[in-house]
């Protein structure tokens, strides 16, 4: 990559975090996960195009990776590691198809840099499985037919999982808010609400 390009593409950790905070606020739960830690530490500056060695903990497994600083967690999950259950719908924090849990909180993986996810526990839809068996929220989505094309489904499931971890017995209004950061163009919302209710009940047992 030429010098000109690296300047154009260059982004500092701090400048990214500043812009990311606004995006994350719309995701689901309250509280800025990363901005807190960034204020504590001095910003590290990395040049675009230079690979960094990082370790990500994904679904309880450590992955040692070489990533560019600008690569999103979504890109690394899908195209580098091959965890393609997490989907890309927009790449800019609009649709929620890429929702994963970071320390139990639903986050858009497209609005999270891979380097930012270091030191945090990342859970994807694959991480909800018990071996070959579906997790509780996944089972509820099957039973209630809470999807059509299935492309937003992983994100809906992760948003629901995050909601139920924080709030095991949500009201119907809380359920609607909990998945309101996740678009479903097929319009399966009605069944999604039913699935989250059912999952909450199943988790109680």
């Amino acid at each position: 990559m030429s010098d000109k390009d690296s300047k154009r593409g260059g982004i500092t950790r701090r400048s990214f975090i500043t812009t990311m905070g606004a995006g994350v606020a719309g995701v689901a739960a309250s509280g800025a996960l990363f901005s807190g830690t960034s204020q504590a530490k001095a910003p590290e500056i990395h040049k675009a195009g230079e690979a960094m060695r990082i370790t990500l903990t994904i679904n309880d497994h450590p992955y040692v990776l070489l990533v560019e600083p600008r690569w999103t967690l979504l890109h690394v999950l899908r195209e580098v590691i091959g965890l393609t259950g997490t989907k890309e719908g927009c790449g800019r924090g609009e649709c929620g198809a890429c929702t994963v849990l970071i320390d139990d909180i639903p986050r858009y993986a497209c609005m999270t840099l891979a380097v930012e996810a270091q030191g945090h526990a990342v859970t994807t839809v694959e991480g909800l499985m018990h071996g070959e068996d579906l997790g509780v929220v996944q089972q509820a989505f099957v039973q209630k037919d809470a999807f059509q094309c299935g492309y937003c489904t992983s994100g809906q499931i992760m948003a629901s999982e995050g909601l139920l971890r924080a709030n095991p017995l949500p009201s119907s209004e809380e359920i609607r808010r909990g998945v309101s950061g996740n678009l479903c163009r097929c319009g399966a919302y009605t069944h999604i609400f039913e699935a989250v209710e059912a999952a909450a009940e199943m988790k109680q047992k």
């Binding site: 393609t84 839809v125 579906l134 099957v142 037919d145 299935g150």
Partner: peptide, 21 residues
């Protein structure tokens, strides 16, 4: 009846064209 491919679509194992590597 739940869908015959519901497992694939909810487990993340269904391969959509944009998932292929």
């Amino acid at each position: 009846l739940p869908r015959v491919d519901a497992y694939e679509r909810t487990s993340g194992s269904a391969l959509y064209p944009s998932d292929l590597l």
